[in-house]
Design a protein around this nucleic acid. Structure first.
Lengths: 320, 320
DNA sequence: TTCCTTACTGCACGTTTGTGCAAATAGCTT
DNA sequence: AAGCTATTTGCACAAACGTGCAGTAAGGAA
């Protein structure tokens, strides 16, 4: 029976983590084999029954973190990685740690806004389960583009978030950018769209990466058929350095007069800043410019990034 | 340098618990040996840098817990132990789990009231370290008796609490019971005593066991030279079933008219009930009667006890 | 400098833990 | 009941881990 399985996992977890017994001893008490106990414990970790937290007492923690914390006023988690790892490995490690960091922040009745992109995709693959009630995962911005509807890619991300937290998933079935601002206006009056916008307005957590215009490894937005050449030229002319959820900004955080934003489906920066917890995940030193702009715009309350980027971010501001 | 040691421990902990690397891999990244990493991780756990939490989603948890929760309105943690273990082993396991359960509740600026006794002694030996600021550990009741000052015994407990949480320790250098109520009145007007009483009045957490009159394994209070035969007779005549911090109560939780309480140095039940978190630790089925009285008196907000006792507590009330 | 004390490191060994695989069991369908 | 599929279990082996011990480095006193 599934009932006893769950409660066995609980007992095993208590004995293992709280009483420091060996799996062997636990197996004897539960009258089962040691390997079953090993699996019970795995599933206990997997389902979020056991939560490992690292509370970095930041008065003594690495000064990198407190430096960033002070400069930008965000709660920062630096992920230690060797500088020699390649982008993909780094992303994987950052994503894994981001997923575990996000876990404790998610709670029942949360409305979780989720963007899409390579970073979020990686994060979504490492989420640890956690039981919550009446939570909702809502897509922050449309994912359709000129070639595909982009739906499957973004919806995979959303689905993983939803199933990790037992939350209802609300997709946003619109393109990333409209061709005409007037179409957006029209759509924004549709009740089906308003339902999503209403959820977004009530978000308690938002999770996103950043796009950076000059990334070596350009974000999907800049390379994936979402924008045509004219759009890209206009972005350059407007001094855009990056985006969050397909809404663009300049290095100083400003975004006034960037016309492309009028056709974008992501939440305005003003709206985003209303959200209580705004978690930004960044991996890869090439995103520095975008990240700097996003921080200047005050888009994040929590920042999770790799050590190399953290270093560059500090020196970036240091001699700027 | 101690600096790099601490931050290595942090990095190692992040890599081990958040990125799922093996100690071997971490050792290579930190350019040290695997055994050093093992030790770094031990110290990270030891110092509370890593915190393992088990969040029992009680809608599906063992019904024992929710039954007690509903009957007595306390937050309960049942410690799984085989019924066949002896008292000492059970106490040890309960104490270990109690210590880990208490950890997350202790915070900076806390004033922690601590009683003494076999249970608290065991708990104090298993506390996990946690860095806090400006916390104070204050002794709940005097420990002197007719034969000894009881100071070393109780003060060991206090000292362990203090050093685990980096808290200042405030002992209460009075006997457990005065011979004359008038002496107590006099002492209670002394400024040195008032300083302690003032701290007690501002406690945010209180931690105590229960004494049970008919325990097979009688509490120190009933056997240790604290009370003479006349006192014990009077307790029996008053229908006393147990005590918390040397303040007695009856099975229904009442304590009016128990004259011995006028000579006791522990906090009155009324005062104790003012404390936000009141954590009661109980091990051993023979304490059921005392525990039942303590719960009836509403002395605890949190209860940590072994499974066998939990079962007896439920059936006790079931056919009562 | 030399000697002493203390704390840390890596090795080697025994213990503990994860996991592929085959057997067993449970759940369903016909 | 039989037959099928999907899980779950225990075994056995390899991988990962903890710890006593001896060697080494880092301070401190004479």
């Amino acid at each position: 029976m599934a009932r006893s399985r769950h409660s066995d996992a609980l007992r095993a977890a208590q004995m293992y983590y709280l009483q420091d017994l060996t799996m062997d001893a636990i197996a004897r008490e539960l009258r089962t084999s040691r390997s079953t106990v090993s699996r019970l414990l795995s599933s206990a970790r997997e389902t979020g029954l056991v939560q490992v937290q690292i509370r970095s007492p930041f008065e003594t923690g690495p000064e990198l973190e407190s430096q960033i914390r002070n400069q930008y006023g965000v709660d920062v988690h630096v992920v230690p990685v060797l500088d020699t790892l390649n982008e993909a490995e780094t992303l994987d490690r950052v994503a894994m740690q981001a997923a575990r960091t996000i876990g404790p922040l998610v709670d029942s009745n949360a409305i979780i806004g989720v963007a899409w992109g390579a970073t979020l995709s990686a994060v979504s693959r490492h989420l640890t389960r956690k039981v919550t009630h009446d939570s909702i995962v809502v897509q922050l911005n449309g994912a359709g583009n000129m070639q595909t509807t982009g739906i499957t890619y973004a919806s995979d991300i959303m689905r993983r978030f939803g199933s990790a937290y037992g939350a209802r998933v609300e997709q946003f079935p619109v393109p990333a950018f409209f061709d005409h601002a007037s179409t957006k206006t029209a759509m924004w009056n549709e009740r089906s769209v308003q339902r999503i916008l209403d959820l977004q307005a009530r978000m308690s957590i938002a999770i996103f990466g950043v796009g950076s215009v000059d990334s070596d490894y350009p974000s999907h937005v800049y390379a994936g058929g979402y924008l045509d050449e004219m759009d890209l030229n206009k972005l350059a002319a407007d001094d855009v350095v990056g985006d969050v959820a397909t809404v663009f900004f300049r290095s100083d955080g400003s975004s006034d007069g960037i016309t492309l934003n009028e056709r974008s489906t992501g939440p305005s920066h003003e709206q985003l800043r209303q959200v209580r917890r705004r978690i930004c995940v960044v991996s890869g030193a090439s995103k520095i410019n975008g990240l700097q702009g996003a921080l200047a715009a005050g888009l994040a309350t929590d920042l999770i990034l790799d050590e190399a980027s953290a270093r560059r971010l500090v020196s970036f501001n240091g001699h700027a």
